[in-house]
């Protein structure tokens, strides 16, 4: 699907578009989303035909079916050839169903914060253009240049192209282009270009088909099928994924250093397994994936101590030997500065 002829639409200012995007949250819709990441990291090992984990979204192209109805009803189905991982939110109940493993995880969201879409566990929602647009727009502040740059046709609908450009050159993000539906303000496509490249987005999520009709209520109803392994957890933040045993981040709360596009997140108590466990049983497990990531890292030394650094097109990662991990959409130098403080 290449760029098609741009439709002619009445002129809109960037502020008008930002307002229409903000108003569009909660618009009922259903559709198919294709997410493509070209971050330049190796594809993380995934078990074939089994669960599609959110970490798989970091490399390659993936398809998801999405259904939305208001802020508290959502369903995202990550589909593989003969597998499916469903994230179903209906009111306070959140279910994560994994077809290959035949497991259903149940979470109960706190009642106090209705409509907090960010509460859904996992990163599954970040595959949708709406979520990706919301994350990009959250960074809009004086450090961002916002413009409207022409129109586009996405999933058969005409859209405005909203362009966000970080002014800070230490950010790895060159620009973020959001295709905003001309009628409803729903973000239909988000493309993130790495600094200095304008040909191929490093990250892209786009509706390939979309319907703005209210989805049927049955879509959001989930009850674990008989024979499935059901785990009940309280709130999503409280419990870590049960398979995150060795080498995964512990419960220490992440700390955010800086603001806007150059914000850096610091985690502590992180360690990677020195060698990735081999064998079929471990394929696709958390430690297997971290082991694969480690192979792509290069050692560094400096005022901050010594550690490993990984630079992708959009995200840099600095892991120190003392277990602190710095992540940000910035050059490794910024991470090293943050670590030295």
């Amino acid at each position: 699907m290449v760029a098609s002829a741009s439709p002619s639409l009445p002129t809109r200012t960037a502020a008008q578009l930002l307002a229409s995007v903000a108003q569009s949250s909660g618009t009922p819709l259903s559709g198919t989303v294709v997410e493509t990441a070209r971050l330049g990291i190796p594809a993380l090992p995934q078990a074939e035909g089994a669960a599609i984990s959110p970490t798989a979204l970091l490399a390659g192209s993936h398809t998801a079916h999405v259904w939305y109805d208001g802020a508290d009803k959502a369903r995202i189905a990550l589909v593989g050839p003969l597998a499916e991982t469903d994230f179903v939110r209906n009111g306070r109940d959140v279910w994560i169903w994994t077809s290959g493993a035949n497991t259903a995880q149940h979470y109960q969201l706190p009642a106090a914060k209705p409509g907090s879409a960010a509460a859904a566990p996992g990163t599954a929602e970040s595959v949708t253009p709406q979520k990706a647009a919301a994350q990009a727009l959250a960074a809009v502040d004086p450090t961002t240049k916002v413009t409207v740059d022409g129109t586009a046709s996405v999933a058969g609908r005409s859209a405005y192209e909203l362009v966000l450009v970080p002014k800070d050159t230490r950010s790895l993000v060159g620009d973020v282009r959001i295709a905003v539906d001309s009628k409803t303000g729903v973000p239909l496509r988000v493309r993130v270009y790495a600094r200095g490249t304008h040909t191929r987005p490093a990250f892209e999520t786009t509706f390939t088909s979309v319907s703005l009709r209210k989805p049927g209520a049955a879509v959001f109803r989930f009850s674990p099928p008989p024979g499935a392994k059901v785990t009940n957890s309280g709130t999503p933040g409280g419990a870590r994924k049960p398979d995150a045993k060795a080498g995964a981040p512990d419960k220490s709360a992440p700390k955010v250093i800086g603001t806007g596009w150059t914000a850096v997140v610091e985690l502590s108590g992180v360690s990677l397994p020195t060698s990735s466990p081999t064998g079929r049983d471990n394929r696709g497990s958390a430690s297997d994936q971290l082991g694969a990531l480690r192979k792509a890292m290069t050692p560094v030394q400096g005022a901050f101590g010594s550690g490993q650094v990984l630079r992708t097109k959009l995200v840099s990662l600095l892991l120190l030997d003392d277990g602190r991990l710095f992540v940000g959409s910035v050059t490794p130098a910024v991470l090293e500065q943050a670590a030295a403080k």
């Binding site: 279910w95 169903w97 989930f222 008989p226």
Partner: peptide, 11 residues
């Protein structure tokens, strides 16, 4: 041969 669980978790 009871109810069948589909890939989406519905029976």
């Amino acid at each position: 041969h009871g109810d069948v669980t589909l890939l989406s978790g519905t029976t």
